[in-house]
Design a protein around this nucleic acid. Structure first.
Length: 199
DNA sequence: GACCGGATTGGC
DNA sequence: CCAATCCGGTCC
């Protein structure tokens, strides 16, 4: 399991290091897990794309203001959850959005949780941030959960070599003006689970 | 209390 | 391209 200090590092560094790591959710014996292959960094008050842009502090983003190592889950578009790994120390409201996994454990359970939207390939089960949360059973109940305690943890795994990390612009943040151009989306080169081809 | 729009998804 | 579908954030 990744140690608490891991999450206190600079957010862009944590984002890159999270690639290849294993996100695990254990709930009442039901285990799902996947290899992280796509993330985005959201870096505090100066990042106009972040929920904490301009120093905004609200009930929704309160977890981002706390210490690194917790899960920030929010509900959006009236139907989807997105999950983030909070980084840095309390008072620095930064986080890394998990956008895609390669399913590893509990694939039949993921498929059941995703049922209703037709058939999916294994990779498609956890492709895109809303789908990651759906397949992994992540919702508002685990907002603020300590990633060093469970029910959701992140396991150490061989790092992805820098040459195999692709940086590109973040998805769906056109409202952020110039900050929409920052290359703060990171994905594993060649992974077929990545949500959209890097630009 | 109103109004606007979203760190998305899937279907046409 | 666009509808789905609720909440959060903001301002009155």
């Amino acid at each position: 399991m990744l140690p608490p200090a891991f999450y206190l590092q600079p957010t862009l560094r944590v984002a890159r290091l999270l690639l290849g790591k294993i996100l695990v959710h254990r709930r009442r014996g039901a285990v799902t897990a996947g290899r992280i292959v796509e993330v985005e960094a959201y870096r505090g008050p100066d990042d106009r794309a972040a929920h904490t842009a301009g120093g905004r502090r609200t009930p929704r983003n309160e977890v981002m203001w706390g210490p690194g190592g917790r899960l920030y889950v929010y509900f959006t578009y009236g139907m989807h959850y997105c999950c983030n790994v909070v980084t840095r120390t309390a008072g620095s409201p930064e986080a890394v959005l998990v956008r895609a996994l390669e399913p590893l454990v509990g694939i039949p359970l993921m498929r059941r949780r995703r049922a209703g939207g037709g058939a999916h390939t294994t990779d498609a089960l956890t492709r895109g941030p809303g789908n990651v949360c759906r397949a992994m059973g992540i919702d508002r109940r685990v907002n603020g959960a300590d990633l060093c305690a469970g029910p959701i943890v992140i396991l150490q795994a061989p790092r992805v070599r820098p040459v195999d990390i692709v940086a590109s612009t973040r998805i769906g943040v056109a409202y952020a003006g110039p900050d929409a151009l920052l290359p703060w989306r990171f994905s594993v080169r060649g992974s077929t689970a990545v949500s959209r081809p890097p630009r």
